[in-house]
Structures are given as structure tokens and as C-alpha cells.
């Protein structure tokens, strides 16, 4: 097992009254969402959180008409586009920050005549003017980044609603926790080994943090519609068996970082780990059925 739990497992012996969670389960962002609220929060806090996620879905989806498809139509045709939707504006600003943080290894642009990736450097995004354009035809697919961003918006809504302890999940690979565990301490999590789900790959604890897991192996990566991971800096398809885990302050940043780690080669992975001190990243190359090496920071 890589890493380890620090504390808090087992029966706490607490004698407090049973803590009931309030729960919202629904489908959005192309996956199943679960919002578990344990502490604090107005009566409609969960509903507000759900609305926040659904609003992000409406703004960022490319599977039905949306503000994102509206700019995609223009950008794919080589034209500039107005960006009026406030959620899309915020998301694009978050993309800019994530691209910089990951040294260009996270890039949600796709398309172009040659199917090129890595288009963000060619994008001119003027947030104040509400306008975007690109030097070549391209389009946006926010993918997993959108899930993390949506969970961030839900967490914001819960905070505004007075929530103090909550666990938010989007498809099990994107997690945001608000506050600490309802029984005290941090939230203890274990991540299954991609080849042997009954075994633990890594254990870690979270508090007011976000977790993202990306992988080129395991059941999630075998979905028939799953596109290959492409390194945006050189267009190479990532074929190495790898699983990456990123813990960040926000869901969007965690998603960007886990994706960047996955497409990075080993050198770039080390650079990423060192670039954001204090954050926790795990970069696992898998060889056959066993994890062979860990680099680029560590999960404590």
C-alpha cells in the first residue's frame, strides 16, 4: 500500500446523538452526483448546491445546446465569439489558471483541421470584454474539469447556506469535501487499486479539499466511448498504464492536475510536483498488475 492513514479509523466511541446526513443524488455533468450534507446548512442548502451543479451542466455541456456549444460553433468556424454566460466566463478564467499551473499539460481545447490538441495558447480570452477568439479553429470540451468546477460551485453554495461538513462526489473520481468529518478529524479515504479493486492503492485524508483521480487503466478507462488521453504539448497519445491522484484546494484545480500528471512524462511529472509546493500529487506508473514506481510528490 502506498501512503497511509494517519488517524481516525475505527469506532470513535463518541456518544453524540446519531448524525443524519441529508443527501441529493442525481445525474449531471454526464455522471452521477451525490451530495452528502452532515453539518449545518439551511433547509434549502442542498437544493441550492444541486441547482449550482445543474447550472454548470447547462453552461458547459457540449451534448446539447449551451453557451459552450455557442462559442464552439464560432471558434470551430474560425470566428470570434461573445461570451455572455457568467458561469462560462468563470470557467474559462479557471481554465487559464489551470493551464498555467500545469505548464500547458492541461488543455481542454480539441479539434482543428488536423485534430490538434493544445489550442489554449492560441486562444485570446478577454473576460472583461466578454469575448473569445482563437488563431485556428478549435472547440472546448471541459470534460472532467467541468465536474470539478461544478463541485466547487456546489461547495460554494453550501458554504453560503451555512454548511460545515459535507462530502460531494461526481462519478467517484471527483471529490470535494467541505470542512472535516462529522465525527471529528479529517475525511479518511482509500483509493482502490485499478487492477485489484479489493486492494487499496493509497489512503489519504482530506479537509476542505478536493481530490481527483485519473487513470489509463481500470474499468473507467475501458468504457467503450472513452477517448485516448492525449498530451497537449506534443499531441502524443498516452499509452502508459498509469493512475494519478491530485489533492488541491479546489475541484477544478484537482481535475486539471490529475489530468496533467497523467499525460506528463516522468520528468514533467516531477516538475509539476515541485511546482506547487504543499499540494499533494501521486503519480503512479503501473507495469502489468503492480504499481512499480511513485514520483512527483507524495501522498502523506
Amino acid at each position: 500500500m502506498v501512503g497511509g492513514l494517519r488517524a481516525g479509523l475505527g469506532d470513535t466511541g463518541l456518544s453524540c446523538a446519531a448524525i443524519e446526513a441529508r443527501v441529493e443524488r442525481f445525474v449531471a455533468m454526464g455522471t452521477r452526483i451525490e451530495l452528502h450534507l452532515f453539518g449545518g446548512g439551511d433547509t434549502d442548502a442542498l437544493a441550492q448546491a444541486r441547482s449550482a451543479i445543474e447550472a454548470v451542466d447547462d453552461a458547459l455541456t457540449i451534448h446539447r445546446p449551451s453557451p459552450t456549444t455557442a462559442i464552439n460553433y464560432c471558434l470551430a468556424a474560425g470566428r470570434s465569439a461573445p461570451v455572455e454566460d457568467p458561469i462560462l466566463l468563470d470557467a474559462l478564467a479557471a481554465v487559464a489558471a489551470a493551464w498555467a499551473m500545469t505548464v500547458g499539460l492541461f488543455d481542454p481545447t480539441v479539434g482543428g483541421a488536423g485534430g490538434e490538441t493544445g489550442g489554449w495558447p492560441l486562444v485570446t480570452f478577454d473576460r472583461l470584454a466578454g469575448r473569445i477568439e482563437a488563431a485556428r479553429p478549435l472547440a472546448f470540451d471541459f470534460g472532467g474539469f467541468g465536474k470539478g468546477y461544478a463541485l466547487d460551485c456546489a461547495a460554494d453554495a453550501l458554504l453560503v447556506g451555512g454548511a460545515t461538513s459535507a462530502f460531494l462526489s461526481a462519478g467517484e473520481s471527483s471529490i470535494v469535501v467541505l470542512g472535516g468529518h462529522p465525527l471529528g478529524g479529517k475525511w479518511p479515504l482509500t483509493i482502490p487499486h485499478p487492477f485489484a479493486p479489493e486492494e487499496t492503492l493509497v489512503a489519504l485524508e482530506l479537509e476542505d479539499e478536493a481530490l481527483s483521480i485519473s487513470s489509463t487503466v481500470g474499468a473507467g478507462a475501458q468504457a467503450p466511448w472513452r477517448a485516448p488521453m492525449v498530451r497537449p504539448t506534443d499531441g502524443a497519445i498516452v499509452t502508459a498504464a498509469a493512475t494519478t491522484v491530485a489533492v488541491e484546494r479546489s475541484g477544478a484545480a484537482a481535475e486539471a492536475m490529475s489530468t496533467a500528471l497523467l499525460v506528463a512524462d516522468e520528468v514533467a511529472g516531477r516538475r509539476l510536483g515541485g511546482k506547487v509546493p504543499g499540494r499533494r500529487h501521486l503519480f503512479l506508473f503501473a507495469d502489468g498488475s503492480s504499481v512499480s514506481r511513485t514520483s512527483a510528490g507524495s501522498i502523506e
Partner: peptide, 13 residues
């Protein structure tokens, strides 16, 4: 009243 590890991040497909 139990604080157990939460296994997460498994198959999403």
C-alpha cells in the same frame, strides 16, 4: 458513530 475509511475512485463506468 463510526469513522471508517471511504473507498472511493473505483470504477465509474
Amino acid at each position: 458513530g463510526r469513522k471508517g475509511a471511504i473507498p472511493i475512485g473505483g470504477a465509474t463506468w
